[in-house]
């Protein structure tokens, strides 16, 4: 795969100008639009990269492979490939939710490529374990997966063309305008399975990059105890508790998230 193939596979867009590159990675349930407001705030003095994970947004759905994306490593490999396609060095990866860990794995694989990480609502493991509180029981995760299996509605704007069996006619598979966060329901279910069954606690200590953990209040996906755990286990990390509530401060409080990232990247200012 050449750089152009990678860029179209992951619907990569590059904006802005600056000697440092910020790569924004979206989490489960949405697409790169999730980062639009925050990313726009950095375009004046940074090179800003946005992309869709394979299976989400306007990525190439035909590139989806249950085997490769059966673990977060597959997604991390894509992130490294995007970095290679853009010839990144000393870049910052800013990951929301599960992409915090995807960013960490990419940085472990290529410490020279991603030297700083911002994690928004990270969790290295969602399911409770002995001496570890992830916030979810295994039974709850099973219930979530059953829910996703049975409830396709509301996930996909591209569902109709698929039902018509026109996946070989791309003009019919184009997403409707103004349709955000749409994703193939089957891929959404598999991504949920990979995300909520992941356990990357052992990887945290291997992260060499300078890391910022951004934690929200009342986040039912990644509770505060989990954010604190991540901070405690990544050697060179900072922790910041935001005023924002919920799991998506990049959408509900973009200014606060922007400021926190700026403070981390440019501590002297």
């Amino acid at each position: 795969m050449g750089p152009d193939d990678i860029r179209s596979r992951n619907n990569v867009t590059v904006h802005g100008d600056g000697h440092r590159t910020l790569v924004f990675a979206h989490g489960f349930g949405c697409d790169k639009h999730m980062w639009a407001d925050v990313a726009a705030n950095f375009e004046d003095d940074h090179r800003v990269v946005l992309f869709d994970h394979v299976g989400a947004g306007q990525s190439d759905l035909s590139a989806y492979d249950s085997g490769k994306y059966g673990s977060l490593d597959g997604y991390a490999r894509d992130l490294v490939e995007i970095g290679e396609a853009l010839e990144l060095r000393d870049a910052v990866v800013i990951g929301h939710s599960v992409s915090s860990m995807i960013g960490a794995l990419a940085s472990i694989a290529r410490p020279d490529m991603f030297t700083q990480i911002v994690m928004v609502g990270p969790s290295p493991r969602y399911i409770d374990d002995t001496d570890y509180t992830g916030g979810f029981s295994r039974q709850q995760i099973d219930e979530l997966l059953t829910f996703l299996e049975e409830n396709h509605l509301g996930w996909s704007a591209a569902m109709a063309p698929q039902i018509m069996g026109n996946s070989e006619r791309p003009e019919l598979s184009e997403r409707l305008n103004g349709s955000f966060c749409s994703t193939d329901p089957d891929i959404a279910r598999e991504f949920a399975k990979v995300t909520f069954h992941s356990d990357n606690r052992g990887d945290l200590s291997r992260v060499q990059a300078r890391t910022l953990v951004l934690q929200c209040q009342q986040d039912i996906i990644a509770p505060q105890a989990v954010g604190e755990y991540v901070h405690a286990n990544i050697p060179n990390s900072e922790y910041r508790l935001l005023e924002a509530t919920g799991h998506c401060p990049n959408l509900s409080a973009p200014e606060e998230v922007t400021k926190a990232i700026r403070d981390f990247l440019h501590p002297s200012r």
Binding site: G29, N151, I220, I221, H247
Partner: peptide
């Protein structure tokens, strides 16, 4: 529970 996670990760965004 499933609806809760779908709401938080997908519907709210």
């Amino acid at each position: 529970f499933g609806g809760r996670i779908a709401f938080e990760t997908h519907i709210a965004p």
